[in-house]
């Protein structure tokens, strides 16, 4: 950089830090990010532009693709909603109750993050299959989990649970107990306190956890494909359909589905970002 005799106030040079390595680290960060993430991802969009709008629309709206997208988004939505309910229960119990083995159980909540998805997939399938530990009890009741859309939901519930619990826990820990006690002394019932005092401060975090679980579920592959049965139009998820198209060398088809999913994921990510800043401002006020 050249030496500038008079540095205008507030310019970058005036605020330059004594710490070295800005150019080196930012340069490396940007190159690595571009080479390994941005350029590969942009290749997807350039490819889909090459298809032309007409062709893109044709391959993206076949009944099979629409059914797969509907299943991926629908099952993720249901799974995330169930996770939100049970995740709230688990987070509440872990923060507010004390029982032996609590630390161990708290650590176990992260199991779906740590367990490879393929392992979760074959394990859940074995569990819910006809002769599995749970399947043999559920089948006589008429509940078929393995190889049905319900199986997809069960697998996505497994994957999504820690997102809800881990988003809620810090918020629950920081809740001001005195407000609840004040509500109780003023005659509020447990449920009133929960609905009017606790839930309003939990909503943003609950919604964030729900969205994170939903976003993860939409793209999930490994844990789902074993238990889904993968029947076209019925239990075939969108990521699997991308895989199938690739195996048939149908690059246009694979690219079109991928672009739709990617755009949906980016929209979700921006939504989650907005939710998180909302959580923070809400949280900061309490």
């Amino acid at each position: 950089m050249s030496i500038v005799p008079a540095v205008p106030f507030g310019s970058r040079a005036a605020r330059r830090s004594v710490i070295p390595g800005f150019g080196l680290t930012l340069g490396f960060t940007m190159s690595y990010l571009s080479l390994l993430v941005l350029i590969p991802l942009s290749s997807l969009f350039v490819r889909s532009l090459g298809l032309g709008w007409q062709h893109f629309w044709e391959v993206a709206t076949t009944p099979r693709v629409l059914a797969a997208l509907r299943l991926s988004f629908g099952a993720s939505l249901v799974a995330a909603a169930v996770d939100a309910a049970f995740g709230l229960l688990v987070a509440w119990v872990l923060v507010r109750h004390r029982f032996p083995g609590m630390r161990l159980i708290d650590a176990m909540v992260d199991l779906p993050f740590a367990l490879p998805t393929a392992v979760a997939g074959i394990s859940l399938t074995t569990l819910y299959a006809q002769h599995g530990w749970l399947g043999r009890w559920l089948l006589p009741l008429g509940i078929k989990v393995a190889y049905t859309p319900l199986g997809v939901i069960v697998a996505l519930m497994f994957i999504g649970l820690p997102f809800v619990v881990r988003t809620l826990q810090p918020i629950l820990e920081d809740l001001d107990r005195e407000v609840e006690q004040a509500a109780a002394t003023l005659g509020a019932t447990t449920w009133q306190t929960f609905a009017r005092i606790i839930m309003p401060s939990l909503w943003p975090a609950l919604l964030t956890g729900f969205s994170l679980a939903f976003a993860r579920g939409v793209g999930e592959y490994g844990s789902v494909i074993f238990i889904a049965g993968n029947m076209p139009m019925r239990s075939e998820i969108a990521p699997l359909l991308i895989m199938t198209r690739l195996e048939q060398y149908d690059y246009a088809g694979a690219t079109a589905i991928a672009v739709i999913m990617l755009l949906a994921s980016f929209a979700l990510m921006l939504g989650i970002n907005a939710l998180q800043s909302w959580t923070l401002t809400r949280h900061g006020e309490t």
Binding site: I39, P40, L44, G219, L240, Y251, M261, M269
Partner: peptide, 24 residues
């Protein structure tokens, strides 16, 4: 913006992560 870009791979389905390298 950089922080959002660093988190980008988490928003991408693993299958798509593989697909982009096939396309390249």
């Amino acid at each position: 913006a950089l922080l959002t870009l660093i988190d980008l791979p988490f928003a991408v389905s693993p299958v798509i992560a593989g697909l982009v390298f096939i396309l390249l």
